[in-house]
Structure formats: C-alpha cells, structure tokens
Design a binder for these strands. Structure first.
Lengths: 323, 323
DNA sequence: TTGAAAGCGTTACCAG
DNA sequence: CTGGTAACGCTTTCAA
C-alpha cells in the first residue's frame, strides 16, 4: 500500500507487475475514500498538463462556437482539456495567453485569431513549441488549417457572373490579413476569368464586421452605376450589407444580389436567406486539434498545411440582375 | 540569487524586504533569460490552480457564447483562467468534468447545464466545493444566477392578451427543469390574470430545441380552433415554430403571433424579427463569475440567489389577432 | 536582507 | 512483485 504501488495501479502500468490481490485492495481503498490524484502534482512530475489553449478573438462571433466545439470534441477524446482565451484582438491579452505556454499551463496552443500579430507567431516558432493556426495562413509555419479562400471566392464570383452579373462589388476583409487578401485576389480572378474590368470604386475595404458591410452599401449605392451584386468577405459583413439595404430601400436580391462567406448558422435564417460559401467549421476545429495533437505526441505530420473544401450554398440572396 | 529570493521578488512580497539592488539584479536576470515560473509547481505549492471550469451543454447554442464572454472577462480580470467543457448533456462527460474539481485542476465550477442531473449538484454540495449554477435554480444551494422566468413569461403572455389575443398556446421547455416549469407557471398565471381558461391542448411539452417548436406548430395547427399566439419557452423553439409556419403556410404574425425567450443574437435578424424576452446574457455570465470569485476568495456572499431583470423586446412577430 | 531547507503530491527508478 | 527514495519547480518558514 505504498504510494508508489498505488500509482502503478492507477496508471495501469503497461508492465502489469502488480499482484491481483494487491491491485484489488488498492482499487477498493481508492473507491472507498474517493481518492482522485492531484493533477498539479502529477503534471509537475510528468511535465505534462494535458491542457491546450484555444485563443479566439471574440467568442460571440458566430464563426467560433462551431470551431470550439470541434476542437473540444477531439481534445477531450484524447484526454486533453481546453483552456479558452478571448483575446478581444488585444495584443496585450494575446501575449498573456502565450505565457500560458511558457509557464507550462498548456502544452500547445491553437490560434484562431486572424488579427493577431505576426510577432506572436514568430515568438511561438522561435520557442519551438507546438501550435497551430486556424483559418489563417502564415509563412512561418506549415501548421495551419484553412480553406482555399482565393479559389472559393473566385468560384462565388463566377457563379454571379453565370447569373448574368457584370457589375460586381466586393467588401473585403482587412487587407493586412492573409484571409482578406486571398479573398480579394479570388474576386479579381473571378472578374478576370470573364474579362470583366476591375473597378477600384467597386471594392471597399472592410474588417469582417457588420458595420463595414453597411458602410460599403452606403458608399456603393451613391455610385452613378451601382453594382448589381456584392461579394462580401464574410457573412457578418454580408449581413451588415443586407441590413443597410433594408434601411436604404434597396431590394435584395432584385436590385442587389449578395453572397457571404463561412455559412455561419444564421445564414439560412435571415430574409432573404443568404447565399454563401460554406466553410466546414466543425471539421476545421477538429482538423486543427488533430494536427496539434500530432505535434504534441511527436507524431510525424505531413509538413504541409491542411486545406479544407468549401461549397457554394445557393439560397435566396442571389438572382440574375434585373436588367 | 537564491531561488527563494527570486520568488520573493517575483511575487512582489507584501513586506518588501528585498534590497533594491538585489531586486534589480534579479529582475534583469529574469528578463534576460525570459524566465517564467512553472505554474504547476507554483500551484502545487500554493494549492491553487487559478483556473475555473465552465460547463455548458452545447457551445454552439447561441445562448452560451455571450455567457462565456461575460465569465471570461471577469475571470481573466481576476487572474483566473477558464477551462471550458462541453457536456453534450451527457451525464458521463459531466461527471468527468466534476473530477476536475476533485483533482484540483480547477478551483471552482460554473455550471450552465440546465439538464444536468441533480446528482451533480448534490455531489458538489456534499464536497463543499465552490460552484455556481447559471440560469438554473436549485434548492440545494443559494449560489445561482437566474432571471425570474415565471414573472417574465407572465408579462409576455399579458402583453399578448393586451394585444387582444385569447387563444394563446405554449411550447414549454422540458418539465423536469426548473426553468421549463417556471415558464409554464408564468404562462398559466398570465392566462389566469385575464380569466382565460387554461386549455391542455394548447400546451405542448418541448425541449428548448428547434424541432420541438416545429412539432408544436404541427400539432396546434390541426386543432379545430388553433391559437392566435404562441408563447415559446425560448428563442430556439420559437425559431423552429417560425420555420414550421413558413412551411405550412401559416402567416406570422398575421395568423399567429410568436414570442421567444432569451433574445439571442439572431432574434432581430429573422423575418419577421422575433419579439422576445431579453435575458442579459453577458451580465449573467459576469454575475455568475463574480459570485464564484466571492466564494473562492472566501468573501461573504449575500447567501441569496441573484435574480437579473428581463425586458420584453417587442419586434415584428407579434400583432393583434386578425379577428 | 538573504540563504537554507522542507514540503506540496505525484511518479519513476532502484533495491530488495 | 513491492517498498523506499529522489526529484519535478516552486513557495514559505526559519535561521543567520
């Protein structure tokens, strides 16, 4: 009944070198006194915390819950706990969460913060610690999970063109993010593929938030020849645009077709329901978690980023142009 | 430069008994070698993990992100980290998260799981550990944060009556939850206050999910004299009802007024936008977190539950009955 | 004002 | 097969 023996029993030592009777006696005692090992002591000894940190810029953004759900599922399956950090896109908070890694609170980090400084990524790389980027490409690592934003956006724009649209506008994401840039590129490629001239005044830089969609509509609708379709950088932006249209009396989709990106849960619920590019959020969370686990367990990884497939979900916000 | 001295400096020992020069020397060294204390060792020594666990049944449910946001805000402010657990309403998972407390991974638990077994609450009480219930009353503790479901529901029903409705139906929550029961009581009280007879066939037991709203509509619309208004137990249920109405060709609000509960983010975005009872989700998360911190820090608590105010948000899903 | 030493609760190694 | 013991990295008490 020495502590070391108890430890052996409780950890199901691979080389089952414990006599059955002793084992049973210990198990009984454990049961009887409701003994649960102290995780900090165990962690200290083993140098493992069995926790991973997941950083998101804003949990309330409908993009993230699904992602978190997927990650949690994979991690809890693997015996890891999830420490959730909301960074509010604040560099300071982000730093404080990176400290978690240095202080051994977590064994790895999952960053779903598109706005986070390159600095953070570089520090993580320098430290040589396990981390994975979600929905964000970065040249400093191959551990990220994304969709092909460029191709998906291009496909969506081509769909609009197929409907007969020629005057297609774009509210972009922030152009200092890979995601924002890639989607802008896809938009341009889409136009190009149909020999449609790129017009500067049809592109409004946004920030993935609702307000920027509204702002874009206000701007675009003052143009002498406003667009007949809008490719938004994401659903939130598309939603903001939709609301602005309602406010300004612009009929959607008759006067303006709108496409979003991500297919967050509300897309099917607004009126008109939103045509959008579906991003497999749950899968993205799971794939990221798996990659991180591979890193953690020292398993060989493909050494290449994971690129998930998207799908254009056609709903009611897109129709052929009126004229 | 003994570890103990370093510890003193780093912990800003209240009785600042460290010579300035030594302090500076240590600070410099810490800076230079990027030293970060090991949290598990510290935790083991101090018997504190500075972490709290937050259990939710389903992060993807729009009710929770705001709640989590509020909690995270308060906790991180107080130097606590948030461990997030998704229980999937699975008793087994719930148990496993309770173990976190026994193994000293977390210092306290915040339970936002309406479906969780009483058993869990009782065990927690028995263990005498700090925990708080969110959006759920329980006789075994005074540490919970709720809204007055009964009164709020009653108010919403009275609003419908004020519009002229007499045939008012209710899709309830699960009747084995306090929340579900209280709202049903509120519904009955509302009818009573206007001398409207309670009709069994107007009440459909649901489970707070979309499908139960749809089921209710299907059932109610077969009645010889269908209701002119529906008080749903929550927004998700109301949404399910709304969709079923669309499917069955029931015009909302003309033929059927609908009221939800919670005011989750999508309420203003559906068509027609949903009249609902606003629950201050962010505040609920923050209040729960604060109460848990009080418990943790051994501060005196009021010893009474916290009841937050609701507000009826009138939108476009409610109008006077057609006839 | 600082150093030395004990101990937090485990696990892992070495004896027996 | 099992018991003793050291060590994980820190904080805290006691002594100097």
């Amino acid at each position: 009944m020495d502590p070391s023996t108890v430890s052996r029993v409780l950890n199901g030592d691979a080389t089952l070198v414990v006599k059955d009777e002793t084992r049973q006696r210990i198990l009984d005692a454990v049961e009887q006194m409701q003994y649960v090992p102290n995780a900090m002591a165990r962690g200290l000894r083993r140098q493992r915390s069995q926790m991973i940190g997941l950083l998101v810029p804003d949990i309330a953004n409908p993009f993230f819950p699904q992602l978190i759900l997927g990650a949690e599922r994979v991690f809890s399956e693997a015996g890891f706990r999830l420490l959730l950090g909301n960074t509010d896109e604040d560099a300071e908070k982000e730093r404080s969460y990176v400290e978690l890694l240095r202080s051994n609170v977590v064994e790895g980090l999952m960053l779903a913060t598109a706005f986070s400084q390159d600095e953070t990524v570089e520090e993580l790389s320098r430290l040589g610690v396990p981390f994975v980027l979600v929905n964000r490409a970065h040249s400093g690592t191959s551990n990220y999970v994304i969709v092909n934003d460029r191709v998906a956006t291009r496909g969506a724009v081509e769909y609009l063109i197929g409907l007969g649209h020629r005057r297609i506008a774009h509210v972009s994401g922030p152009l200092y993010t890979e995601t924002g840039l890639s989607r802008l590129r896809g938009y341009r490629e889409g136009l190009l593929s149909a020999q449609i001239e790129y017009r500067d005044e049809y592109v409004v830089e946004g920030d993935f938030k609702e307000a920027s969609g509204a702002r874009a509509i206000e701007r675009l609708w003052q143009l002498p020849d406003p667009p007949t379709a809008l490719m938004a950088a994401n659903d939130l932006t598309a939603l903001g645009a939709l609301e602005a249209c309602r406010r300004l009396g612009v009929r959607v989709p008759e006067q303006l077709s709108i496409i979003g990106f991500n297919d967050v849960p509300f897309c099917g619920m607004v009126t008109p329901s939103l045509t959008t590019v579906r991003v497999p959020l749950l899968e993205m969370g799971m794939a990221s978690a798996r990659r991180l686990l591979d890193l953690l367990e020292g398993r060989a990884t493909p050494g290449t980023p994971i690129v998930l497939d998207t799908e254009l979900v056609v709903r009611n916000s897109t129709v052929p142009p009126e004229r």
